[in-house]
Amino acid sequence: MKETFELIATAAAGLEAVVGREVRELGYECQVENGRVRFWGDKKAIVETNIWLRAADRIKIVVGQFPARTFEELFQGVFALDWENYLPLCCKFPISKAKCVKSKLHNEPSVQAISKKAVVKKLQKHFSRPEGVPLQEVGAEYKIEVSILKDVATVLIDTTGSSLFKRGYRVEKGGAPIKENMAAAILLLSNWCPDKPLIDPTCGSGTFCIEAAMLARQIAPGLKRSFAFEEWNWMEDELTAQVRKEAQAKIRTDLKLDISGFDIDGRMIEMAKKNAFAAGVDQDITFKQMRLQDLRTDKVNGVIISNPPYGERLLDDDAIIQLYGEMGQTFAPLKTWSKFILTSDEQFESLCGQLADKKRKLYNGTLKVDLYQFFGQRMKRQRDAPKQTE
């Protein structure tokens, strides 16, 4: 069985550097590429990155790479890989995904079928099974993916299962909520830290607030969920239990956080409270039904993060114009507060009446969005560690 693996943490476009920083903070050297971060690690690395990465989508094992200009090259390339080091007899091994970009091979169903045939033949040979007898696929699942870019095939196994954005705390959600890993990434891109007040004035089901509390308290985002690798016979249960125990021990209980979420819809506020309770951070967040234009505060050096309704999430153009105008007017007096607004509306700056200090292009699923960043005026404040509870 292999001791070291070439691994990939996949990421939404524009968030690769955030994921790269997280991987390095876990102690792994990495290479940031388009849509992914490549690194090497052992079995513990597979467990740690799945449990700890906040902004990534999935962790995948790179089984191999090779030229694939013809279907024969594809077959032979897949067959040559060391499948016996990954797949036990009787496991399920679907070719769950094939993607071909700028390549001579472009029929993705055929790529899946030929890759599957090659893996079957390799396992039949390794386990001395007759070619005419099909392999039983009744055990744990190892989802295989084949990606062909510019005639080079990369073959991967997904270790994660359900995407990493599924933390397990979202009991209920409203229409088109922001994904948890996108919310976490925006918090990591912002200048918020746990000793600053944080407000989400359009909080919906509470994702930004919950992710902020989890980040501040160092609660590993994957602590309460399961992963595909946990069913694999070569991943020791004791190792996963050890990493979870270490993560549990790192949770900070000595913080007093100032996080608030407001929404005009009372039903969303009730959802947000349920989700925060499920995440174990309900005591850290104040949720309240309130109109955006009623937001007032005497606090300084805070951070506002918002994913307001836009595009498909709110079809009424007049309502969008009114909302963005209200945002500009409401936020204007908050001179020392930084604001981070995520929207696909390219007219946002003109509608809110202020030019952003910085704009970052991201993708919310397939939808191109921009993170508008308005930095507050710096005001002297106590630069101590976050306040301790009494």
Rank of each mutant, 00 (worst) to 15 (best):
K288Y: 10
K288W: 08
K288N: 08
K288E: 12
Q289T: 14
M290L: 15
M290S: 13
M290C: 13
R291L: 12
R291V: 09
D294F: 07
L295F: 07
R296A: 10
R296E: 11
R296Y: 10
T297H: 04
D298Y: 06
K299G: 07
K299Y: 07
K299N: 06
V300K: 10
N301D: 12
N301M: 07
G302Y: 02
I304F: 06
I304K: 00
I305W: 02
N307Q: 07
P309H: 06
Y310C: 03
G311H: 05
L314V: 09
L315C: 09
L315F: 11
A319T: 11
A319Q: 09
A319K: 10
I320G: 00
I320Q: 00
I321K: 15
Q322M: 14
Q322I: 15
L323T: 03
G325H: 04
M327V: 09
Q329K: 12
Q329D: 12
Q329C: 07
Q329G: 06
F331R: 00
A332K: 11
L334D: 00
L334G: 00
K335Q: 15
K335H: 15
T336I: 08
S338G: 08
F340D: 01
I341T: 03
I341W: 02
E346F: 14
E346W: 13
Q347S: 10
E349H: 02
E349M: 05
S350E: 15
S350K: 14
L351P: 00
L351V: 04
G353Y: 08
Q354I: 10
L355S: 13
A356V: 04
K358Y: 08
K359S: 11
N364S: 11
N364M: 07
T366S: 14
L367P: 05
L367N: 06
K368C: 14
V369G: 00
V369L: 06
Y372M: 07
Y372E: 05
Y372A: 04
